[in-house]
């Protein structure tokens, strides 16, 4: 084992959900979003969560981030109860909520202001090093000249990309991406997949990616978990065997196509019967 502050570098379990149930609301307005879910994610893994809308994907991400607490069961991150371990977490929310009073750059720099060890240096570096870092990231996602704009001056897809920058800027060890490319056109999306893959291969964070795009899941993830709905549960868990770095061309190979087809059929069969409420 390494020292106490250093996280274990081996193929240890990094994130673990143990028999987690999550119920929203109380009384007769209860919604069981997750029922007895189990999930283990190893350090440095890239896991994609796919499944029909409303099956509890965002809920899993919020549980692992510690934004909500499991009704029953346990969530562990880095071997300790969620929130206890000093893990840097980055999260790109499904709705890219930016603070409207800050510029896009200041929004992107927010994690550096909050998260140690950066926060100690924030005041001295916010005008130089941190600023450059934010600008470099914004440039990477194609928002080079938008740092000084305010969030409402950006389109939905631009906001989503800015929100991705905010999730990445503090080099998180645990990265939560909730449909980060959902509002983008196919070409921008594919460009960002490449950026994302490169980043992951370089820094090896543990990633949980929620997506509705099976090609995206196949391109990026090392593992794909399929969920079903009412109650949400993981029904399939498969490794993605393709070598890295992956390319867009790879997604047209017969193996890739048959994999996405298999996933597609599974999700279709998991879809809830149309409720008559």
């Amino acid at each position: 084992m390494t020292s106490a502050t250093e996280l274990p570098r081996t193929e240890d379990t990094f994130v673990e959900l143990e028999n987690v149930t999550l119920t929203y609301g109380r009384g007769d307005k209860q919604v069981t979003a997750l029922g007895l879910t189990n999930l283990r994610v190893n350090q440095g893994d890239f896991v994609a969560l796919v499944g029909p809308s409303g099956c509890g994907k965002s809920t899993i991400l919020k549980l692992v981030t510690g934004l909500i607490t499991a009704t029953e069961g346990f969530v562990y991150v880095a071997g300790r109860e969620v929130g206890a371990a000093p893990v840097r977490v980055g999260m790109a929310f499904q709705n890219p909520t930016m603070l409207p009073w800050l510029t896009v750059r200041d929004n992107v720099m927010m994690p550096l202001k909050i998260v140690p060890p950066f926060r100690q240096e924030y005041q001295s570096k916010k005008k130089t090093e941190f600023r450059d870092r934010a600008d470099a990231l914004l440039k990477e996602v194609g928002l080079a000249n938008f740092g000084d704009k305010h969030p409402w001056q950006l389109s939905g897809g631009m906001l989503q990309r800015a929100s991705l920058c905010r999730a990445l800027i503090h080099e998180p060890q645990l990265l939560m991406l909730d449909e980060p490319f959902g509002a983008l056109d196919q070409f921008t999306r594919e460009e960002l997949w490449a950026v994302m893959q490169e980043l992951w291969m370089k820094l090896k964070p543990t990633v949980l990616l929620v997506t509705h795009d099976l090609k995206e899941a196949g391109y990026l993830a090392t593992r794909i978990c399929v969920m079903r709905t009412r109650p949400g549960q993981i029904v399939d868990d498969a490794q993605v065997p393709f070598p890295r770095p992956r390319t867009i061309d790879m997604s047209y190979t017969p193996e890739f196509v048959s994999m996405t087809q298999r996933l597609r059929e599974m999700i279709v069969s998991q879809r809830p019967v149309k409720e008559t409420v």
């Binding site: 981030t65 510690g66 934004l67 929130g83 977490v89 980055g90 999260m91 929310f93 709705n95 909520t97 603070l99 927010m110 994690p111 909050i114 998260v115 905010r166 503090h170 939560m176």
Partner: peptide
């Protein structure tokens, strides 16, 4: 939601 952005960063 605004607070969640911060809470996610601990």
């Amino acid at each position: 939601e605004l607070e969640d952005v911060m809470r996610a960063l601990r």
